[in-house]
Design a protein around this nucleic acid. Sequence first.
DNA 1: ATTATATGACACCTTTTGGTTTCGTGTCAA
DNA 2: TTGACACGAAACCAAAAGGTGTCATATAAT
Lengths: 111, 111
Amino acid sequence: MTVSSTKHDVFQAIADPTRRELLSLLAEKEMSVTIISDHFPITRTAVSKHLRVLSEAGLVTEQKVGRETRYKLQPEGLRELKQWLAYYERFWDKKLTALKNFVEIKDIEHN
Amino acid sequence: MTVSSTKHDVFQAIADPTRRELLSLLAEKEMSVTIISDHFPITRTAVSKHLRVLSEAGLVTEQKVGRETRYKLQPEGLRELKQWLAYYERFWDKKLTALKNFVEIKDIEHN
DNA sequence: ATTATATGACACCTTTTGGTTTCGTGTCAA
DNA sequence: TTGACACGAAACCAAAAGGTGTCATATAAT
């Protein structure tokens, strides 16, 4: 176990479009569940469930303030995804490099 | 519609751990369905379905060669993910920058 | 021509997911 | 103290996801 106990993994957490919208909303500022729910056509309960998934994946943090629960983005949770992606970037960079070389050679041929 | 007709989106495609394994396997080299299936504890049919999802998300390409279908990684399909992620990188970079400044100030204070 | 291989298409099953409604509890305001 | 509000928990539901087994078909090999 690295840092946050991730019952849900990041990949699964961001798979749902509503949850991605939640992330982008919470990127702007910390918000309570009810306020967050006002931005979505689904019930507060449903939003709450999504928030829990995001929380368990370490993508948001929750803080109780009086009777409300404030959520905010925890961008560090996306590190795992970045690392995963970095592995594959090599492959398309490789292709790009090949294309670049090809174009340059063509350019030389034209002179 | 951008480039490849993406019935399944990338986010959903990479949510499944088996599909992520498929990607890493196909990153090494092009392979036929049966050969691919040998690397997994599930049936060929199941693997085939996963491959279709990946294909529809633009993450692999399929090519028929005689009676077999060869699949290979199409890393460009991950661009969308990279872009999405880039947006959030700003947020954790911001925090890193703040931390860096803090550490530097502390360092100055120590002199 | 006959047999073996590689694969997709179905039909089907079970679990997970995304959603709802209802209810209980803690907290704030009058 | 009596409402009103914010929320989580629970029970429930339909659809999607991840599997399986069987069958038909195209291609290769004998």
